[in-house]
């Protein structure tokens, strides 16, 4: 698109999508909240994700008022807050992950206020230095592009835009303009971790979006099972699973809210199932 990409990006996201296109399969993108329930647990999960089949990782940055999130991710945010999460700590987590993995793209997902308070320029500099590849900021529609989207693109940070079932053809060009890295299609009109769209609705939506853009299309919201992830991966370029993984973390805590012994393995086992679903979605990709 016409994004003012005057800063060079890390290139990791472009390389990953190019490689997957050559393989003929979609990406699997798991989402977890940074420091849920502890920084160590997050690092344990993050470091295991690529081997478990994660192609790209979305890392949630906490906000006290997550208006687009359902109960599972709201609860994760509260746990993470207790675990010491803030923007600075989240970037430290990315830096440590990056020390051992220089290829798996990391996208930070969250809300604008913590970034605004950190300071946009400082944030972009520090996030880039930590190894963040892109941003998804739920409450910054195109109408507020001057806040963070344009500075991000200028700094070589992908700004991944959300398109939704309410984004009609008339509005879609505004959403696509300045969108970079990939387009995140929110499959339902609703919050995270609640309803699921039908396979037919998702397929129709992805076809519609592909008529308007060459950007890879990721689909998220309401994808909870390997089967659902596979159905998305048949047509989309990536499938995102968040709440189901986050809920699994909630289900594997001890009475004090600390990670149970098998937390990391349990999460990675589930991620493997989801990733296998994505990898098996298109028959030709198996060979």
């Amino acid at each position: 698109m016409s994004a003012p990409n005057n800063g060079a990006t890390s290139g990791r996201l472009e390389a990953r999508f190019a490689a997957l296109a050559a393989e003929g399969r979609a990406a699997f993108i798991p989402f977890i909240v940074a420091a849920d329930p502890t920084i160590d647990a997050t690092l344990g999960i993050l470091k295991g994700l690529p081997a478990a089949g994660a192609d790209i990782i979305e890392l949630g940055v906490i906000f006290s008022d997550p208006m687009a999130d359902g109960p599972a991710i709201q609860a994760a945010g509260l746990r993470a807050k207790a675990g010491g999460a803030n923007v600075r700590q989240t970037l430290a987590i990315v830096r440590e992950f990056r020390a051992g993995d220089d290829t798996t793209p990391i996208i930070l997902m969250g809300y604008y206020n913590p970034i605004y308070i950190y300071g946009v320029d400082d944030f972009l500099r520090d996030a880039k230095a930590a190894g963040v590849d892109g941003l998804i900021v739920v409450d910054l529609p195109p109408e507020e592009d001057s806040e963070l989207c344009l500075p991000s693109l200028a700094a070589g940070m992908h700004f991944v835009r959300l398109a939704t079932p309410t984004t009609d053809d008339q509005r879609l060009p505004a959403v696509l303009d300045h969108s970079s890295g990939f387009l995140y299609y929110v499959a339902i009109a609703g919050i995270t971790g609640t309803a699921s769209a039908t396979r037919e609705a998702i397929h129709a939506a992805v076809r519609r979006l592909k008529n308007h853009t060459d950007l890879p299309i990721a689909v998220g919201f309401g994808i909870k099972t390997p089967e659902q992830a596979a159905a998305v991966a048949q047509v989309a370029d990536a499938a995102v699973v968040g709440s189901a993984i986050v809920q699994l973390i909630a289900d594997n805590l001890d009475d004090n809210g600390q990670p149970a012994e098998n937390l990391v393995d349990t999460v990675l086992d589930f991620v493997r199932l989801l990733a296998d679903g994505v990898r098996s979605a298109r028959p030709q990709a198996a060979d």
Partner: peptide, 20 residues
Amino acid sequence: EKGHFGIFGGRYVAETLMPL
């Protein structure tokens, strides 16, 4: 016209709500 009073105001909402 974008709903700003100086630097205040604006439309910081999820895309789902923007068309509405």
